[in-house]
């Protein structure tokens, strides 16, 4: 005889909300993740201080010194040119070509004589933001991998199924939390760099002379950078979930970037637009990435390529390529988690 069906347990809606909060708490409470983020913040602060020592707003004295040294070099160059033009060993008809045109201050550039350049928003802000995007993308990969990898190594994900038995919901919430973590990480990275850049520009450079459309382009790049961090965090998550081990996931990631991509670049250059690194760069760079693939024509005497194919990988194409890899990885991991027996 069966016991009558019992109406037990909290409502599913409550469970969903609680599961999300619990997963966020789990992620935030992980010591390894706290250490990683702490080290990243520390590294960022140290690099910001180092960067601040590399820029300087030029004083009138520095500018005068640079101007003097540039004029000195200009005079020397002109002297050399005159000696060249007077050299009878050079055929007269070739002298203008060999000795070159007269040099002027623009060609030398007084800024090249300033040891510490001023920080410029137009040049240094987007470049620094790209570096921050790359660093946070790698950090996101590790965080994504360790977040779910630890669940598998401690098998606490199995314990969680004693509380929430709907596996798709469990893995869905975990994936969402990983994506959210990536987004927060990417956004905070970009915001932190923007703050530091503003500080550097105000104290060691200039905030003026920003061309029209600059901020729109920069915002677009920052947004794509955040998207990249979300994708790499989910790639780490998806890989560790698939093989159920953080260390192995990180090892595979390292082997891919250090070995597989290098080998493919050298042996099958036409695969470059499909590589993760190139696709990532293409996603965040303003205007995408232009790749020159050597071949197929070769100079028989030197053995070197005489023809290059130019491939433009747009932001959208880079993003789609990464998304395709990510979807396959997540779908496979989710399907296995849903179907497999768990021990």
């Amino acid at each position: 005889m069966s016991a009558p069906p019992r109406e037990t347990g909290p409502e599913p809606a409550t469970l969903r909300g609680s599961l999300l909060r619990t997963e966020l708490a789990r992620l935030a409470a992980r010591r390894f993740i706290q250490v990683l983020v702490g080290l990243a913040v520390l590294g960022f602060l140290v690099l910001s201080v180092v960067a601040s020592t590399q820029y300087s707003e030029p004083t009138p004295a520095i500018l005068a010194d640079a101007q003097a040294r540039m004029e000195q070099d200009l005079a020397l160059a002109e002297q050399y040119r005159q000696e060249c033009l007077a050299d009878e060993a050079i055929p007269e008809s070739d002298r203008e070509f060999v000795c070159g045109p007269p040099l002027d201050e623009q060609g030398f550039g007084v800024e090249n004589y300033i040891f510490k350049q001023p920080f410029t928003l137009t040049g240094d802000l987007p470049a620094g933001a790209l570096a921050v995007a790359a660093a946070t993308a790698m950090l996101g990969f590790v965080i994504g991998a360790t977040y779910v990898g630890a669940e598998w190594s401690t098998r606490s994900i199995v314990a969680l199924l004693f509380w929430e038995t709907r596996r798709l919901r469990v893995i869905g919430v975990k994936t969402g939390v990983a994506a959210l973590a990536g987004a927060v990480l990417g956004l905070l990275g970009q915001l932190a760099w923007f703050g530091v850049a503003q500080l550097l520009a105000r104290t060691r450079g200039t905030t003026t002379d920003v061309p029209a459309g600059f901020w729109g382009d920069f915002l677009g790049q920052a947004g794509r950078s955040v998207l990249l961090v979300v994708i790499t965090t989910l790639l780490g998550f998806g890989l560790a979930n698939l093989i159920r081990n953080t260390g192995a996931a990180l090892g595979i990631g390292f082997a891919y970037f250090a070995v597989v991509e290098t080998a493919l670049r050298a042996l099958v250059p036409s695969t470059q637009p499909f590589l993760l690194t190139d696709s990532s760069v293409a996603l965040i760079l303003q205007g995408g990435l232009t790749i020159f693939v050597a071949g197929p024509r070769v100079d028989e005497s030197t053995g070197s390529f005489t023809e290059f194919t130019e491939i433009v990988v747009s932001n959208v194409r880079g993003g789609l390529t990464l998304s395709a890899y990510l979807l396959v990885l997540l779908a496979l991991g989710t399907w296995l988690f849903h179907r497999r027996d768990l021990h």
Binding site: A29, A150, F162, W163, E164
Partner: peptide, 30 residues
């Protein structure tokens, strides 16, 4: 499942978390 408690073989918890925090994480789900 809200009315079923289970301990299957070894207890499955995060080793670096305290006992109380481990329970809190599970309790939060339900």
């Amino acid at each position: 499942i809200g009315s079923i408690g289970a301990l299957v073989e070894a207890p499955l918890f995060f080793p670096n978390f305290s006992g109380r925090r481990n329970l809190r994480l599970l309790a939060g789900v339900a």
